[in-house]
Computed example of a mutant assay.
Amino acid sequence: MRKALPILLLSLLYSAFAQANSIKCVDSQGITHYGDTIPPECANSSVTELDEKGMPIKETPANLSPEERRAMEVEVQKQAAEAEQLKEQRRRDSALLSTYASEAEIDMARDRNVQQITLTLNSIDARLKSARDRLAQFNAQAAGYTHQGKAVPADLTQNINTAKTDVSDLEVELAQKKQDLATMKAKYDADKKRYRELTKPPQK
């Protein structure tokens, strides 16, 4: 009796063949099946992939050896990944072309976002400077108590700790926002490059 393909392999085959025009297989009862996916009845059968005209273009055999099965799994995974990447690229291309009518519009969108993030960066910078000034002031007060041989008041110690936390948090926020700016610029550069590729007149 033929051994069933592993569930994982079968699910991958479903996904891979779903990208084809149609498939054909004959189950154990001799019934021929056509469709866009592999039916459960053909889990142990060879499967033929057909082109748009119904002509066979690829045969997936049954009763594979362990080595053949592993090789097939790798190939199916590769094809499924490539098909998914192509599908995602087409989706992105469609969104890009429907969003912008020219490269100039991409530049304007980028500049608007740069301006917004720059304003946020300036705000964080100002808050960070203020927090550092407060920390320096509190540290100076604490140093005065220490110089006089007095204990630093608890409320001043609390103020120092709070100011340190504020400085640390704002430094992290500033670094993250700078990274966001760099990432955003890179995205618009990539969008502009891809837009140019998609709208480039065909060569004669």
Results as ranks from 00 to 15, higher is better:
202 P>C: 00
185 K>M: 03
72 M>H: 11
60 T>D: 10
186 A>C: 07
78 K>Q: 12
54 G>N: 01
173 E>V: 01
148 Q>F: 03
108 M>L: 07
115 Q>V: 09
114 V>D: 10
45 S>K: 03
114 V>R: 12
36 D>K: 10
16 A>S: 13
93 D>T: 10
60 T>F: 10
79 Q>K: 13
65 S>E: 13
159 N>V: 03
202 P>T: 02
74 V>H: 08
29 Q>P: 08
181 L>S: 04
30 G>F: 07
190 A>C: 04
162 T>I: 12
76 V>A: 15
65 S>W: 07
128 L>K: 14
24 K>E: 15
26 V>W: 02
111 D>W: 00
99 T>K: 14
55 M>E: 14
100 Y>W: 01
78 K>A: 15
117 I>C: 06
191 D>F: 08
24 K>F: 14
25 C>V: 01
63 N>I: 02
38 I>Y: 01
191 D>H: 10
4 A>H: 07
3 K>H: 05
139 N>K: 00
168 S>H: 15
110 R>H: 04
158 Q>F: 09
130 S>K: 07
21 N>G: 01
191 D>A: 04
89 Q>E: 14
195 Y>W: 10
18 A>V: 04
148 Q>K: 02
42 C>V: 01
94 S>W: 12
142 A>L: 00
186 A>D: 05
83 A>W: 07
113 N>W: 03
15 S>G: 10
62 A>C: 11
27 D>C: 07
109 A>G: 00
130 S>C: 05
157 T>K: 14
25 C>P: 03
162 T>D: 09
144 G>H: 00
5 L>W: 03
105 E>H: 02
189 D>S: 05
10 L>R: 04
197 E>W: 06
22 S>P: 06
154 A>V: 14
191 D>I: 02
162 T>M: 05
125 D>R: 09
77 Q>L: 11
87 K>D: 12
32 T>F: 07
199 T>S: 13
58 K>S: 04
81 A>Q: 08
20 A>C: 12
192 K>Q: 14
180 D>M: 08
14 Y>I: 01
201 P>G: 09
41 E>V: 00
108 M>S: 07
52 E>W: 06
11 S>C: 02
37 T>H: 08
129 K>W: 09
154 A>T: 14
191 D>N: 10
150 K>W: 10
77 Q>V: 11
38 I>G: 00
112 R>Q: 13
20 A>F: 03
113 N>G: 05
80 A>C: 09
84 E>Q: 15
56 P>E: 13
112 R>S: 12
160 I>L: 04
2 R>M: 06
115 Q>W: 06
11 S>N: 09
55 M>Y: 08
49 E>I: 00
